[in-house]
Design a binder for these strands. Structure first.
Length: 869
RNA sequence: GCCCGGAUGGCGAAAUGGCAGACGCAUCAGACUUAAAAUCUGAAGCUGCGUAAGCAGCGUGCGGGUUCAAGUCCCGCUCCGGGUACCA
């Protein structure tokens, strides 16, 4: 029969809540701290799926274990609740997203509680709560009011820049990349004479948050911009998506590219995630080389292969490149315009999906600064406007893409790097019929001929003087931070009719979302907030009439910093108190899905570093140790989905098998990081294990526990069993190997269940070992063993290495590396003694009779291998 | 294409270079039961030989290598999963 899990689980959940068992006193610094964090969920209408509790159980085990070990543990939970589903539901039904959100959160909270997670629910945060997003907006403005000073490689308050301009002009600063505004090079007097609007425009080039016009995926039918990854989905549904330049709020994450890259070295993260972030940032070292057109227009290209410069046979510019208008000759103008129009209708994704090369000639030529050769200037959509300079030098002999382009349009191929003459591609490359991208020996390159290409690379750059300079580029782009949506944090900015753009004062936060009757798209390129007339329009005593920013923040915003707020969730004075962040950060263990490996984790690192620079935080990385839980598949080993009908509802599992069995099964399935299929039979097996645990301590009948558990001393074997289990479980939890920890607990039970009188010390230690995994039954057993006060705060059992020693060990006897016999010897018998025993052993003697012993390998406590022939 | 990760019984899996398959699921046999379920006890990698205890051989995706000894280390592949993709 089954132990009464539903009654027990409910009782102890109530006990923990009523006694505040897991309430954390964050000001208690007398004990070592441990911050154990889950990626908080988006509370969808579907409720939890079995994937959520996997990571949550893992962190809960660690949190409970650390408490047993005497740590002050912070283990919080909250809701990442802004997002599209609630808004779409609102569009259909006019039910306010906050209503849906609240309902869903209620359901999630109930489900999480039912699994017995030891969260400090007093710290719960909700990204859609104005008291929370007040601080999201505060961070937005703090970054808005900051700039990145490359001279000291850190963010500083924008005031310091204004100060610098006002006293010494811009002389000490380099021209910002893609600078837009009044002519650069102003002195203090010129700055002070500038209009407020001009000053504003200059500062926009520096702020960590800025508005910028960039091409976006605009979907007319939805009345919104789509992220690149959303485009396919909506096109399939029959919507059309076009590329359209729009003014968007951006965050200057690229200022941090180098530091985001460098910081990766210091983290205890999965190597795959570190790689993904590294690739995403995409640092490449190369040179910017200036070509000049015959009409005198400068065309700068970025290349990582300056060694191939003599092999340039054409140039290709992105269709959007600013110089295209000037370069297009009258004869080619029509074709150029036509091609540019055509590409503007393609989404970035389509453009990249098409591997067929397209393009047109502008009619112009440019001069190769190294060889003086004249090369035609083309435009082609394989060149991206947003990377490097938006222009490439075409070297078909040594670049696959250029080769394909040259083939399509019949452009010449000029090899300048020869592979090893012995290699099979040598002839083809020299004949210009094959592309060769590796290093080799320089040819057709004037003074550089005969040099190794790696050596020539930077020598060529040097030789060009002002026409070339070494530089580093990053693939990473700035972060597009606007969404044309209602259900997100309002951006706390007002645009006045004069053109002035003014942030709200910090004291005016939170800027609360207006109540609205309808949630339909606005009909323009603005969010539905454009229809909230009263909220929208602002009258200012000095600036006059203004309109609020109607874009809202992306869903990533709230999740960028929630780990900070958990430290100090109710603080109305500051985002987080210094003492608390200094004591509690960084997060010691962060568990969540690998799908957040780049975006969330990169954005959060960025904000953290910026707040660190500005003096609000004391660490420059937020998450010390990161682990991704693996995907849980359906019973059919397919991805769980409603349409497949293979999804599993945690509520049903808890009702039928209990939370403890569910927790144990989720951890027992296999290694945490691995993908693995669900198995209902497997859950049953874990419940069976708990039944056995119950029977081991409490017995079958409602008899006295005392009859079963006595104060007798343990035998040596029992002590060995107990301490082996303590050691295994402890080591496995530390290494997050929960599956093998559980199997050690099973071995213990298999050993003790049939012992007539159970030694109390062993049972009590076992219950404490079990409690992180199956806390409800552990509490119940602890109390039945005669203890009040709960097991959750009991000290972890101590491991005594002296108790696991053995007197005798079994030695394997091999002849010619095959196992032929076994023998028992005293533990620690020396190798030479083992060798002697082996050679005297009957089976061994029989097998080597008549042969010569060539070699004997003896390993203490393990084996003897006799090699004979 | 590129970057990760994986491949071990019927299934999920375990194994500091030293007895492959711990633990669990499913299976089979036995006990309890009028019976079933539950529970308990036990068996079991595969193949061949043997009435049997047992004996022999083969076994960790494939092919090589290092080693007294390889699931584990090295070289070369295959398949599966995830991410990413004209980034100059």
């Amino acid at each position: 029969m089954s132990y009464p899990f539903s009654e027990i689980e409910e009782r102890w959940q109530r006990y923990w809540q009523e006694n505040g068992t897991f309430r954390t006193d964050v000001h208690d610094t007398s004990r070592p701290k441990c911050f154990v964090l889950d990626m908080f969920p988006y509370p969808s209408g579907d409720g939890l799926h079995v994937g959520h509790p996997e990571g949550y159980t893992a962190t809960d085990i660690v949190a409970r274990y650390r408490r047993h070990c005497g740590y002050n543990v912070l283990h919080p939970m909250g809701w990442d609740a802004f997002g599209l589903p609630a808004e779409q539901y609102a569009m259909k039904t006019n039910v306010h997203p906050s209503v849906t959100t609240e309902r869903n959160i209620g359901n999630f909270r109930r489900q999480l509680r039912s699994l017995g997670f030891s969260y400090d629910w007093d710290r719960e945060v909700n990204t859609t709560d104005p008291s929370y997003y007040r601080w999201t907006q505060w961070i937005f403005l703090t970054l808005y009011n900051a700039w990145y000073d490359t001279r000291v490689q850190k963010a500083r308050a924008i005031d310091t820049l204004v100060q610098e301009f006002a006293t010494s002009g811009c002389a000490a600063l380099g021209t910002p990349a893609n600078y837009e505004g009044p002519e650069w090079g102003f002195d203090a007097a010129a700055w002070n004479a500038m209009s407020a609007l001009d000053q504003q425009q200059v500062l926009t080039n520096f702020r960590l948050v800025f508005e910028h016009e960039i091409p976006v995926n605009w979907c007319e039918g939805l009345g919104s911009v789509l992220a690149n990854e959303e485009v396919d989905e909506w096109v399939k549904k029959g919507y059309s998506v076009e590329r359209r330049p729009m003014r968007q709020w951006m965050m200057r994450i690229t200022a941090y590219s180098e530091r985001l890259l460098a910081g990766l070295e210091t983290l205890n993260w999965p190597a795959s995630t570190v790689d993904m972030q590294r690739n995403w940032i995409g640092k490449s070292e190369g040179a910017e080389i200036t070509f000049v057109s015959e009409a005198g227009i400068s065309l700068s290209v970025f290349t990582t292969r300056p060694d191939t410069l003599f092999g340039v046979t054409f140039m290709t510019l992105a269709p959007e490149h600013a110089a295209v208008d000037e370069l297009a000759t009258p004869g080619q103008r029509a074709a150029v315009d036509q091609y540019r129009r055509q590409t503007s209708f393609k989404s970035e994704r389509d453009r990249q999906a098409d591997t067929e090369k397209t393009g047109v000639w502008t009619g112009s030529y440019a001069i190769n600064p190294a060889s003086g050769e004249r090369v035609p200037v083309w435009i082609g959509d394989y060149v991206l406007a947003g990377y490097g300079t938006g222009a490439v030098m075409g070297v078909p002999a040594h670049d696959e893409r250029d080769f394909a382009f040259a083939e399509t349009f019949g452009l010449p191929v000029l090899p300048v790097i020869a592979p090893d003459p012995a290699s099979p591609e040598y002839q083809g490359v020299l004949a210009g019929g094959q592309c060769y991208t590796d290093a080799g020996t320089m040819i057709n390159s004037g003074a550089f001929d005969g040099m190794h290409s790696e050596e020539a690379k930077w020598k060529i750059v040097e030789s060009l003087g002002a026409a070339a300079r070494r530089t580093v580029k990053y693939k990473q782009r700035d972060w597009l931070f606007s969404r044309q949506r209602y259900w997100g944090e309002p951006i706390p900015i007002v645009k006045y009719d004069s053109g002035l753009v003014m942030p709200l004062e910090m004291s005016e936060l939170p800027l609360v979302l207006p109540e609205m009757a309808e949630f339909k798209p606005s009909g323009s390129t603005e969010s539905p907030l454009a229809l909230a007339t009263e909220w929208l329009n602002v009258e200012h005593p000095v600036y006059g009439h203004g309109r609020r920013e109607t874009n809202t923040m992306p869903q990533w915003a709230g999740s960028c910093w929630y780990y900070l707020r958990f430290l100090d969730p109710a603080n109305t004075e500051t985002v987080v108190t210094h003492d608390l962040e200094r004591h509690w950060l960084p997060v010691d263990l962060y568990i969540g899905g690998a799908e957040h490996g780049v975006l969330h984790l990169l954005y959060a690192r960025f904000w953290h570093k910026a707040l660190f620079d500005l003096g609000y935080l004391s660490t420059d990385e937020p998450f010390r140790r990161l682990v991704h839980q693996g995907l849980i598949l359906g019973e059919d080993s397919q991805k769980m989905s409603k349409s497949r009908g293979n999804s599993v509802n945690p509520d049903a599992v808890v009702a039928e098998y209990g939370a403890d069995a569910m927790r144990l099964f989720e951890m027992f399935m296999g290694p945490l990081e691995m993908t693995k299929p669900w198995s209902t039979k497997g859950v049953e097996g874990l419940r069976r294990f708990l039944n056995r645990v119950w029977r081991m301590v409490v017995g079958d009948e409602e008899a006295e526990v005392a009859a079963l558990v006595t104060d007798r001393a343990m035998t040596l074997d029992e002590e060995r069993m107990l301490h082996t289990t303590i050691q295994k479980v402890t080591e496995d939890i530390e290494a997050l190997r929960f599956n093998t920890a559980i199997s050690a607990l099973m071995v213990f039970v298999n050993e003790f269940i049939n012992v007539a009188e159970k030694p109390r010390a062993a049972m009590e230690a076992f219950v404490r070992l079990l409690s992180p995994f199956a806390p409800h039954i552990a509490e119940e057993l602890w109390s039945r063993l005669g203890h009040g006060g709960g097991v959750a705060n009991q000290p972890w059992p101590e491991f005594d290495p002296g108790k696991i020693t053995v007197d005798e060990v079994e030695i394997v006897l091999q002849v010619n590396s095959r196992i032929k016999a076994k023998t028992v010897v005293p533990a620690g018998t020396e190798a030479n003694e083992l060798e002697r025993l082996a050679l005297e052993h009957d089976s061994v003697r029989y097998l080597i009779a008549g042969k010569t012993v060539r070699k004997v390998i003896a390993v203490k406590d393990k084996l003897v291998n006799v090699i004979a022939s």
